[in-house]
Amino acid sequence: MSQALSLFILYFTFLAWLSPLSETDLNPIQDKTVTIGLLVSHKSQNEIIHAAELAIETKNLKGGFNGHPFKLVVRSTEGPWGAGSKESVSLVYEDDVRAFVGSLDGRNGHLAEQVAAKSHLAYLETRTSEPTLSQAYVPWFLRIVPNDNQQAQAILDLIGEKGRGKTALLLSEDYDAKYAAKALTKYSAQTNGISPLIIAVNPNESSTKSAVDQLKKAGSDHLIIPYYSDTALGLVADLREKLPHLKVYGTLAFSMGINSRSDLKNLEGMILLQAFKGADDQSPIHPGKLASSYTFDGVTLILNAILKVGLDRESISDFLAGGDHPNGKTGPFRFDDMGNRTGNIRFVQILNGEVVSLMECQ
């Protein structure tokens, strides 16, 4: 039996054994702290972890929960398939978290969601936009980033306002990127009556010549990049020189891959999907700080829920899912029945090496 199959059987056997937590399973306050979980894809995601810690510290400086401090437990899904399940279970049954936040890819997001469904603990995802997570209709799952369908509609509506023209789409073998490409292709066919030109890129190929040649030959007016890689970043720089008329768009996944210390001049002219429309004076966020901003907002939402309704897990989930919440770094919060965040999506453009608000797209 293969290792992957063994892990598969072990995982689902373990899930079958799990049962929803009873109120006695969750001690009123263990060790006089209120514990919140954070699942990350890699232990090296320091900015994500620091953002979560800052959210915790901010509430603790104001007295925590009835004088009891909040505590953050961080677990990583690094490792073989199934690690996302194991670490999610550990958060719930070893660390006794009251809710948990994820900064995950789509595959591990599904594993974490199944644990949330079994334990009835709120799971708030701040990174993956893979749409089928919401389609499982798990009432304890919420996502504060726009999903692929929302992003596809927003970007292609924006292209429509710019006169449409020929659209191309960069394609990668990455799991999440495939879902994003699927959504973009589907919405393009619905709105334009034609699918975009698909340009497949080998992640191990550093040369951008083939992609540039295909775009030039097709006479493309717009290019959408639904993922981040060094090759994609190099392509943007090459296109600025070789096809200056081409308008280039990046999804949230592209923005989140940018390092906070990156020189944005390499992205000159690029239009990036960023966050949700908030107050009129909401400042654009540096693309490299988007992931940490969403994480800060996610942890803060959970802490606000606990401060409002207490430690009961059902009450926390109900509070998060229902009604409006104050603006965060990434805009206001309201969720639909599937756990998707709703609202107007905000775009920015890189001009003269600076992040400038472009417009809000319905």
Rank of each mutant, 00 (worst) to 15 (best):
N66D: 05
F70T: 12
H110E: 08
T126P: 05
S90F: 13
T126A: 05
V89F: 12
L61C: 08
P146Q: 04
L121P: 03
N46Y: 13
E47K: 09
N108T: 08
S129K: 06
F65S: 01
D96W: 09
T126F: 00
L91M: 08
R75C: 00
W17F: 15
V97R: 06
S19K: 14
T58Q: 01
A55V: 07
S19R: 15
A112H: 12
L26P: 02
I49S: 09
S19D: 10
L124F: 14
S90Q: 04
V34E: 01
N108W: 10
G63S: 07
F65G: 05
S119W: 06
T35I: 03
E87C: 04
A116M: 02
V74K: 06
V138G: 00
P80Q: 08
A112T: 10
L21A: 05
V40M: 07
N108R: 09
V89W: 09
S119C: 09
D105G: 11
P20D: 11
S129V: 15
L61R: 11
L91D: 01
S90M: 07
L54I: 05
H110V: 12
E113G: 09
G64I: 03
V97E: 01
E94S: 14
D25V: 12
K71P: 06
L38G: 04
L21M: 09
S88P: 04
P80C: 05
P80V: 15
A83I: 06
Q45L: 11
N27C: 06
G102A: 06
Y123W: 02
V40F: 02
V40E: 01
H68P: 03
L124A: 10
A122Q: 07
T35K: 15
A117Y: 13
V115G: 05
S90N: 13
D105Q: 08
L38H: 08
T126G: 07
Y93M: 13
I48C: 02
V73P: 07
A52V: 04
G102T: 00
